[in-house]
C-alpha cells in the first residue's frame, strides 16, 4: 500500500535564519517580507506548500496545474503582502487568492471542454486493504472511482467544500475562516454539496 499523506497534519514548520534572527512564526515572516526580505517568504512557502498544492489539486484535478496555480498564488500573495495585516491568518488569505485563481482556470478551461475527471482520476490513490476479500475490494474501489467521477460533475463550489472537509480534513471552524462565512453556512453548504454528490451516486445507495 502506498503512503497516504495527510495534508493537514503534515504541514512543515521550517525555521529560517534571516540575517541576525531566526524566523519561527508567520507573523515574523510577514513583517520581514513587508520590509522587502524575499528569503523570509520562504518560511511561509515551505510551511504551506503541501496544503496549497493539495488544495489546488482538489480543485483543478491535475498535478501540473496544481503546482503552477499554487505557486502563482504564492507569487501574487508576495506581491500584495505589504497590504496584508500580519495579525491575520496568512493561509486563509492565501487560500482566497488560490481559489480565485483555480476557479478562473476552471472557467477558462470549460471553454475548451476538457473533462475534469479525465485529468483528475489518475491523481487519486486507490487504496487496497489486504484483509478484505477481492470482491469487497473491487466493490470499494469501484465506489471510490464513482465518488471521484461524481465529484468531478458537481458544481465547483460544492466540490470545494467536500474536499475541504473530507479530503483535507479541515474543521468547520477552519472552513468558516477560509470561506469567510459563519459555521452554520458551512454546514448548510456542506449538506447541499453532499446531497448533490449523493444524487450522482444513487446506484450505490439504492
Amino acid at each position: 500500500m502506498e503512503l497516504i499523506l495527510d495534508t493537514v497534519e503534515s504541514v512543515i514548520k521550517p525555521e529560517v535564519p534571516v540575517g541576525a534572527f531566526t524566523i519561527d512564526n508567520d507573523q515574523n515572516a510577514i513583517l520581514s517580507c513587508q520590509k522587502g526580505n524575499k528569503q523570509a517568504y520562504g518560511f511561509l512557502v515551505r510551511k504551506y506548500m503541501k496544503r496549497a498544492y493539495y488544495t489546488a489539486l482538489g480543485l483543478v484535478g491535475s498535478h501540473e496545474n496544481a503546482v503552477d496555480l499554487s505557486q502563482d498564488a504564492f507569487i501574487r500573495a508576495y506581491r500584495a503582502i505589504k497590504k496584508f495585516d500580519a495579525e491575520k491568518n496568512f493561509f486563509t488569505w492565501y487560500y482566497r487568492i488560490l481559489r480565485n485563481l483555480c476557479f478562473n482556470f476552471l472557467r477558462d478551461r470549460a471553454r475548451h471542454a476538457r473533462s475534469f475527471s479525465e485529468v483528475g482520476e489518475k491523481n487519486i490513490n486507490v487504496l487496497t486493504d489486504e484483509s478484505q476479500n477481492t470482491s469487497v475490494q473491487v466493490e470499494r474501489n469501484e465506489l471510490r472511482r464513482a465518488v471521484w467521477d461524481a465529484l468531478a460533475t458537481i458544481k465547483k463550489h460544492d466540490r470545494e467544500i467536500i474536499i475541504l472537509k473530507d479530503i483535507q480534513n479541515f474543521s468547520y471552524k477552519e472552513i468558516a475562516e477560509i470561506l469567510d462565512c459563519p459555521i452554520g453556512t458551512v454546514m448548510s453548504r456542506l449538506y447541499n454539496a453532499r446531497k448533490a454528490l449523493k444524487a450522482k451516486l444513487e446506484r450505490f445507495y439504492a
Binding site: I4, L5, H63, N123
Partner: peptide, 14 residues
C-alpha cells in the same frame, strides 16, 4: 455511508 466513501479518498503524493 457517503461520508465513509469520501473520507477514504486521498491524493497520491507527488
Amino acid at each position: 455511508n457517503l461520508k465513509e466513501a469520501t473520507k477514504e479518498m486521498k491524493f497520491k503524493n507527488p
